[in-house]
């Protein structure tokens, strides 16, 4: 019996996967995020951005899922980017040692700017770059 308070919205731009989990990462339902990441990795997308703006709460079970993702990315020689992290979640990631394995950006847009040099693909103004 999994609670229905977690969802993942995802998309791909070039070789970048952007995942936006929503809700509570506090039970086995959070595994969905790990499965989505695995699917992108299996398709050959090695740069994964996780946007945490809609995450309300992360407990040890949610953290376990993120640790699993860190491990999978590292095995696939991919790169993981976290964006839009609340202070309280940042502290948890730091405490658990996750931070060392990811690049942090304040906003998803910044991570994309970092990864995609061709601004037109992003629909960004040149001045943004």
């Amino acid at each position: 019996m999994l609670t229905n308070n977690f969802a993942v919205v995802s998309k791909a731009i070039d070789d970048i996967a952007i995942l936006q989990p929503k809700g509570y990462m506090n039970d086995l339902g959070a595994e969905r995020l790990e499965h989505e990441c695995e699917q992108f990795l299996d398709k050959g997308l090695k740069k994964l951005i996780i946007n945490f703006s809609d995450i309300q709460h992360i407990n040890s079970m949610g953290a376990s899922v993120l640790i699993g993702i860190v491990q999978r990315i590292s095995e696939s020689k991919g790169q993981l980017y976290f964006t839009n992290i609340k202070k309280v979640h940042f502290d948890v990631f730091e405490m658990l040692g996750i931070i060392k394995y990811v690049k942090i950006f304040k906003e998803e847009r910044e991570a994309l700017k970092f990864l995609i040099k061709d601004a037109e693909k992003l629909g960004l103004e040149k001045t943004d770059l």
């Binding site: 019996m1 086995l28 040890s60 079970m61 376990s64 640790i67």
Partner: peptide, 23 residues
């Protein structure tokens, strides 16, 4: 009131989450 397998899997996730253990 969850099933035994789910409880036990949940417990393992708690351990791995607290101590940052991937496997």
């Amino acid at each position: 009131s969850k099933g035994f397998n789910e409880k036990i899997k949940g417990a393992l996730y708690v351990v791995t989450g607290i101590f940052s253990i991937p496997r």
